[in-house]
Design a binder for these strands. Structure first.
Lengths: 138, 138
DNA sequence: CTTGACTCTGTAGTAATGTACAGAGTTTAG
DNA sequence: CTAAACTCTGTACATTACTACAGAGTCAAG
């Protein structure tokens, strides 16, 4: 397989060229070999790595966390268990966020229910509720 | 009740002084009256408003969204009905966000389930799955 | 009345995550 | 061979949500 130029890698991985160079600067991907001209020449698996980054980001990992995942992989002491634990911690984070949103939703639903949809805004119970110190919102 | 200086408001609302001035610049809180000296003098309810912002932020609203909520209240033409409609739209947004997070969570759960937590990282299915093109993660 | 704490404006910096040129050199299709 | 497309470096800009001064003026306790 021929090495790929940055543009090919970008289109195959579904990211921008600038993004790849950015990731290189940030240490998320290795500096690839270059042609004499200075053009970057990527092996095939650079595409997989960029896809990994993209998917992990979609799953709510920050670049920093992704970098940590890579560091784990590089470290020969790391076990599958550790990766799994990270994923589980992430699930916990996501559950927290879901719960927080559900609280907001419940609060808004309650407010909507208490609002007849008539009268001036000054009498609308919706906005007052969030000004309290915690109680009404959760 | 005496008007409060910015420092008092900040400590009561649990935010920084600079944050308050920042919110003022951003239009999240009104410019308060001033003393001759130029010192800001806040009415009590500024504290409630800042708490509102803080709580809403903790619940995942961006400052922009919070501003939109306030905009509803400020407009004298706004009726309770409009607030209610906005609140309902907001509920829809929140439901979307919850669903997105649940998709992520399901994906991560699937990955965790496929990982026995044993063996070297090179055999971890979680990392493999992230390298694939989309299918495994959604 | 002095001194230390407070506040003012205005500017600049931070972190995260890119995106957008400018200006120059390189590669490739026709 | 030429022109279009591509890539290079380096810098600057965008967004969100603050945070940190600098230098000057103000307030309040003792």
């Amino acid at each position: 397989m021929k090495p790929l130029t940055i543009g090919k890698v970008a289109s195959r991985a579904g990211v921008g060229i600038e993004t790849i160079r950015f990731y290189e600067r940030e240490g998320l991907i290795a500096e690839p070999p270059r042609k004499e001209s200075g053009y970057r020449l990527y092996p095939e698996d650079a595409v997989a790595r960029l896809r990994f980054i993209r998917h992990a980001k979609e799953l709510g990992f920050s670049l920093k966390e992704i970098k940590e995942l890579f560091a784990l992989r590089v470290d020969p002491e790391t076990t599958c268990k550790e990766i799994r634990e990270r994923a589980q911690a992430k699930i916990g984070d996501i559950e927290d966020r879901i719960r927080a949103l559900q609280r907001v939703k419940r609060a808004l639903n309650g407010l909507v229910a208490s609002c007849k949809g008539r009268g001036p805004v000054s009498e609308c119970p919706i906005l007052d509720a969030l000004g309290q110190d915690g109680a009404k919102c959760c």
